[in-house]
Write a protein that binds this DNA or RNA. Sequence first.
DNA 1: TCCTCTTGAGGGAACGCTCCCTGAACAGCT
DNA 2: AGCTGTTCAGGGAGCGTTCCCTCAAGAGGA
Lengths: 330, 330
Amino acid sequence: MRRPTLAVVAARAGVSKSSVSRVVNGEHTVAPEIRDLVMRAVHELGYVPNAAARNLVTRRTDAVAMVVSDPPQGVLSDDPLFSTVVRVASRELEAAGKQVVLMLAESDRSRARVESHVAAGHVDGVLLLSLHGADPLPAVLARTSLPVVSFGRTAAPTVPYVDLDNAGGATLAVRHLLDRGRQRIATVTGPLDLSDARERLAGYREALRDTGRRPLVALGDFTRISGAEAMRQLLADEPSLDAVFAANDLMAIGALRTLRETGRRVPDDVAVVGFDDIEAAAYSAPALTTVRSPMADQALTAVRLLLGLLAGQTGEPVIMPNELVVREST
Amino acid sequence: MRRPTLAVVAARAGVSKSSVSRVVNGEHTVAPEIRDLVMRAVHELGYVPNAAARNLVTRRTDAVAMVVSDPPQGVLSDDPLFSTVVRVASRELEAAGKQVVLMLAESDRSRARVESHVAAGHVDGVLLLSLHGADPLPAVLARTSLPVVSFGRTAAPTVPYVDLDNAGGATLAVRHLLDRGRQRIATVTGPLDLSDARERLAGYREALRDTGRRPLVALGDFTRISGAEAMRQLLADEPSLDAVFAANDLMAIGALRTLRETGRRVPDDVAVVGFDDIEAAAYSAPALTTVRSPMADQALTAVRLLLGLLAGQTGEPVIMPNELVVREST
DNA sequence: TCCTCTTGAGGGAACGCTCCCTGAACAGCT
DNA sequence: AGCTGTTCAGGGAGCGTTCCCTCAAGAGGA
């Protein structure tokens, strides 16, 4: 048994297909009595428009792609970022009547899939979740001339993005450590192919510059384990350090683990600041001082930007502010 | 400038539309020379089939809905479960050539959206992420007679699911505490409207039954904060307790926090076991002994089950085994 | 009363594809 | 040589919409 079509509804209501179409699409050039007739038939038959047929003629899909551009074991994998951003963005897009098509771009093969899917016009626009500055995808997608918005800065000039004030946040964190009287302040960076990581490092350097202190840098990759290892490295290089700024909370949590294992008290011996304020930050031992990044707001802003583009408006990049959350680790 | 259509490709190749269609769909009743001609034209023109037109006539969509059935502040919100399951499932579905339509079902309104979307035939099948046993959605979706598979047990009899051996895992955890010589073993449950939570509680009771020990139960809701509060409650009720089985890792981490704040040493004074083995479990202080639930495998199994149903096979519920991971907290 | 103008309903082509059906070409048999 | 059977290309209807165009009906003005 087949779902009813426009024609069936029209027959039931005793009007033409055109009128039913007009009512269903909310056009105002239709007499109230006809509208009522149609509405009744629609409800009685449980009519739902066939999206495929509609897309075919309108060339709109009312769908947007949510592209997660990140390698399988990448930054977003275990990050609370993923669930927060995906959920908030989905909710907002659904509220706007858009269908959300989730696509992973974690290999060349899947990137090609994304590209052809988008180029084929299966979606009206793209919300790109990309933290990787060198990602080729933004530029590729921009070429399709479909609206694209990126969550996180991209190199493609025509792609508006929503990003944090990473450098500012890092400076905030380091200034806080300076205020606490710390003398030897190290940092654990994220993977430096990510602009987020580079900017946070730049903010760290910036804050130290005027104080005459030497930077002390160890590389991490935004995972807990890398934070633990980088901390070990830092302690070996500079046993006298008394503060660490980790470029994200997961690495800060890893660093806490190493400090605990090596018998350092936090914050007495070493103060630790993270970045992001993920929920786990409040539950570490000791609870983590961190720079809150408004991920939900950022996601919301990105979606609104995309919806604006879809509606024909233009879009400018947005930088979100952030704030320091002081807890027990400093 | 419009994307090329079948007809354009046919003209270019000097063959009929039908032949192009046959080649594009990989039918074998086509002569090699014609196939080559068509393939060349396809590549030269960058032809990609129009999905809407194809769907219209085939009544297939090659899309599946991934429905996240969970209130906004629900269990999946901050849970690593979400990102793991969503990513693994997406990857597998994409590999099978399916488009993934992400839908949230967090309110009556959005549930209705999901229902009408599915009933309207916009997808070929549904992968339901539902941990809520009383969720009305499985039954509703089952009525559409489209293939539905649930990640997590459901009450709907016709919906195959993939679930953990929750009771067995809980029993495993409690037996471990008994083996360690613990005398007074409490538990922190999840929200009891979730079957996962109920089963884990049942497993706890089961393991204690033969030992003649009295159960000691506090209610949580699978969040860190609830674990911390439940632990406080337990300590007030029974200051002499020497072990806790928390029904998930997040609550176990919350419990660790309370124990630390109240001056208990773990595991010396109180041993703690969690459930799930999320990545954070290895980074708590002390590192958490926990029951590993193979979430990635479970997601994969669910997807395979769904793909089987889509291919016309039948599907039976699957129960995944789990194992104990012993760390520092016991 | 007639004409023009406006409002709004109906008819039907078009969107790009699949798939059924027809029929051409050729092989194999009597 | 003639007939049957098989293989495979082409023609064209139809999928369920939208939207342009035509046209009927009624309002308003001369």
